[in-house]
Design a protein around this nucleic acid. Structure first.
Lengths: 212, 212
DNA sequence: TAGATTGTTAATCGATTAACAATC
DNA sequence: TAGATTGTTAATCGATTAACAATC
């Protein structure tokens, strides 16, 4: 891959472009200009063109962008053209909710195994996928070419488990625990800190009726 | 409130400061310098001082910051000193997971009611909270001084429901639907787009082994 | 060809970092 | 007092926006 020096800000926006392109595609729109997309997404046309040009010249002067083509190119940039094999660690309420979410599969994220510390639920199945004891993670990862681990366990255990996952060769962790994981540089961590999201909402709520 | 012109970047960091301060407090640490906190959080000491000073001079030269005091001040800034009354709309897997998450309550976010379109589950309870028909939202909001609505419904319905919530006078929406809501300026929307988070992970995974 | 719209450079704006005087 | 560390100003860095030549 030759892409480099892509700022975090651009990466944050990429999935949103992808979502809008998908909607345009589904509604049968074949081409779109940065100006028109700008209007829909409430970002500047200039930013759209800048952002996309970091990855290549996907448009055509006088024409704009071909929706289907751009949609597929962004998919490739995001790595959605390849299948990812996931394991879920922690079959609590949130873990179950994620395991039941079938739409991830459509994007190539396939849940292969579920693991939990609670022996009482071992053998139970969620959407046909068995809940297994933690001891089996290492072998399971090897046998199923797992590259992503979804961590939906309390923060107290998350740090230790993350270390183990790293030692087992995990490539990426989708972390829902309220803790920052300390992993090697080449291990990807994407955090979903729901409580922090709710606090930001609370901040904005407290300051929304202010003259600004 | 006199706070204004606070950049989005700072607001993003605030809950993380709060989390670290909480952990320091719990481990019995009474004071901390920006330098020491910088080391723990992997941000610059300069940024910590800049960020905090947007809200006031919480520190003391030669001493640093008093952990408990700063923790409480940030809580106030985030609006966590006041109780917020929530309703949850959509009692699917994700909605149930959120309804079962008791820790939000500790921060003053109290779930008062749950609503769903599915008549079959009306009357059922999650953590003692009854699932009600959608038609009751308006009256319920009035009776229980609801200020935050949690939206865990499919995107097809989310836009319409959001419009209704706005017309009922909702102040803030915690939106888990994969769609951008178009609400008036004084209505707060905090999005949690899980699929976009997973795509960012995928992007970073695809580009992690690159020489950078 | 004329019109439209990109790709890209230059200008602006904002956020981060560095430095240091103020002060506990 | 001397040492430490903040609060704050100035310098740097990076991201966004504007402008326009290139080109379909």
């Amino acid at each position: 891959m030759e892409t480099k020096d892509i700022s975090r800000a651009i990466i944050e926006r990429l999935p949103r472009y992808y979502r809008y392109l998908g909607e345009l595609k589904d509604s049968g729109i074949e081409r779109i200009s940065s100006k028109e997309l700008s209007k829909r997404m409430h970002v500047t046309a200039s930013q759209i063109r800048q952002d996309l040009n970091h990855f290549g010249g996907f448009g055509q002067q006088g024409y704009g962008y071909n929706v289907k083509y751009l949609y597929e190119e962004i998919a490739k940039i995001l790595g959605l053209h390849k299948q990812h094999n996931l394991i879920l660690i922690g079959a609590g309420h949130l873990g179950q909710a994620l395991a039941n979410y079938v739409n991830f599969e459509r994007r190539g994220f396939v849940l292969k195994g579920i693991f939990d510390i609670d022996t009482a639920i071992h053998g139970q199945k969620i959407r046909g996928i068995e809940i297994r004891p933690m001891e089996e993670i290492e072998a399971f990862m090897r046998d199923h070419a797992i590259d992503i681990a979804v961590l939906t366990i309390p923060k107290a255990e998350a740090v230790k488990i993350a270390d183990e996952l790293v030692s087992f060769g995990i490539k990426a962790i989708w972390n829902f625990a309220h803790v920052d994981l300390d992993v090697p540089e080449d291990t990807v961590v994407e955090n979903v800190h729901l409580s922090e999201s709710l606090m930001r909402l609370s901040y904005n709520l407290a300051n929304s009726s202010v003259t600004d």
